[in-house]
Amino acid sequence: MNWLLVALGAAVGAPLRYLTDRAVQARHGSAFPWGTLVVNVAGSFALGLLTGVASGRAQLLLGTGLCGALTTYSTFSYETLRLYEGGAKGHAVLNAAGSLAAGLGAVWLGTAVAGLP
């Protein structure tokens, strides 16, 4: 049952990441990976919020499953490496530092909104 909740959340989260990334990249058309940044920041905010308000089962469905699959560390790392290899070293550093700062800020905001100390 628990596993099913995680699987169900991921079945929505992973395609949502793919479609969001495509929509964002199509709009910007730049080499900077805005799409991954958007899903990682949005997912971090949502997980922070959930931590304060969701029950155990909702955590598995929406936290471990949905937010876990919506956000990604592998694509973030690969895109950072690709920027660096392609000569855009400044953008690579900006993507790494910006993602960490924005993700951490977003999770903080989420937990604050949820009223966590």
């Binding site: 931590t51 990604t72 999770v107 100390p117």
Partner: peptide
């Protein structure tokens, strides 16, 4: 395997939340 498996396997949100928890 890439967008699906690796993307679903790795997570940025839990990483951010666990970092915030360690600070907390």
């Amino acid at each position: 395997l890439g967008t699906g498996f690796c993307g679903g396997f790795t997570t940025f949100s839990t990483y951010a939340l666990d970092t915030r928890r360690l600070f907390g």
